[in-house]
């Protein structure tokens, strides 16, 4: 490979990291909040799709993509509320409920979304931070959407809030030990429901990014499992918001390898290159985990814990 080709692939990875990572980031941050409170919502894939559809529809009707983002957050919050309340019932399994809600979210989004496949809705704009450069690749890589920046900020705010605010501490206490939380007078169920609602709202915003910015239109194939992958990335990130950022960026960058290599003429084995993000994640996990630290940092009440 020539220097040019290597540069091109690296630039594409940078661009991919910025463009593709945002939905992963929002969903995994949302799920981190939910899981910190001791619940797993596996249904965020459905919430993401519902958010994408609602955002597109709202943007189309209102003419404002930011109202679309708001609509997506609301739709996500509704699904989060549903999960939060139902999972609070005794004996109702949160993982199973999540899978069922994934189906319901996808189904409703596809059903109501039929009308929005064809029209073109106003989409979100980007900050052109690369305007100084002559390279079209760099310019496009640095077309940064405000939501990406919001996601980054949110990760750091969450990191700080989990450690330093009363709400953050309550959330963690509820997630780590229900008995201790009750003893400390924390409202366990309301905290969990609220955490799931916020998680759903953030996942909805992740969906809005898909339909309103990148790729920037609504159709039924929009999410090829990004939502469920993002939920899985939370475990990879060990429930730490800052590591969610790393995981999302890495995932986006690795996903750009396949297309970028082909654009410079290396196209054999493209399926294998396309599997790079998954293989890389697995490899990193196998290398960094050990028998004793597997669920280090996991909230104690999480049903993944045994």
């Amino acid at each position: 490979m020539t220097i040019d080709a290597i540069t091109a692939v690296l630039l594409a990875m940078l661009g991919g990291a910025i463009r593709v990572s945002t939905p992963f980031l929002f969903v995994s941050l949302g799920e981190t909040i939910t899981e910190k409170a001791g619940r797993i919502n596996l249904g965020l894939e459905g919430t993401l799709v519902m958010g994408a559809m609602s955002a597109y529809a709202a943007s189309l009707y209102s003419g404002s993509p930011w109202l679309g983002v708001l609509a997506a957050a609301c739709a996500g919050a509704v699904f989060g509320l549903l999960h939060g309340l139902l999972a609070s019932l005794r004996r109702v399994n949160d993982i199973a409920l999540g899978i069922a809600l994934m189906l319901l979210g996808t189904g409703l989004a596809f059903y109501w979304g039929k009308a929005y496949i064809q029209p073109q809705a106003p989409t979100l704009r980007a900050f052109h931070l690369g305007a100084w450069s002559d390279s079209p690749a760099l310019r496009s890589a640095l077309d940064i959407n405000p939501l990406f920046i919001a996601g980054l900020l949110l990760a750091f705010v969450l990191h700080w809030a989990f450690a330093n605010t009363r709400v953050g501490l309550t959330l963690r206490l509820v997630g780590d030990s229900e008995a201790a939380a009750r003893a400390a007078g924390a409202a366990v169920i309301p905290t969990r429901v609220a955490a799931t609602v916020i998680g759903g709202a953030l996942a909805g915003v992740g969906g809005a990014f898909l339909s309103l910015f990148y790729p920037g239109s609504w159709n039924e194939g929009l999410s090829n499992g990004q939502g469920i992958m993002a939920v899985a990335l939370v475990i990879f990130a060990r429930w730490q918001p800052r590591r969610c950022v790393l995981a999302a960026l890495m995932f986006g960058a690795a996903g750009a390898i396949g297309p970028a290599l082909q654009s410079v003429g290396i196209s054999s084995g493209y399926y294998l290159f396309n599997a790079a993000p998954y293989a890389l994640t697995l490899l990193l996990m196998a290398l960094t985990c050990s028998r004793d630290t597997s669920l280090k940092g996991a909230p104690g009440e999480l049903s993944l814990n045994r």
Binding site: A12, P136, P215, N224, G255, Q262, S263, N274
Partner: peptide, 19 residues
């Protein structure tokens, strides 16, 4: 690699434009 993969198609389109 598949007939309907919007995100991958967008990545591909961007890579091509970058070139």
């Amino acid at each position: 690699g598949d007939w309907a993969m919007p995100v991958k198609e967008a990545e591909a389109a961007n890579s091509l434009l970058d070139q």
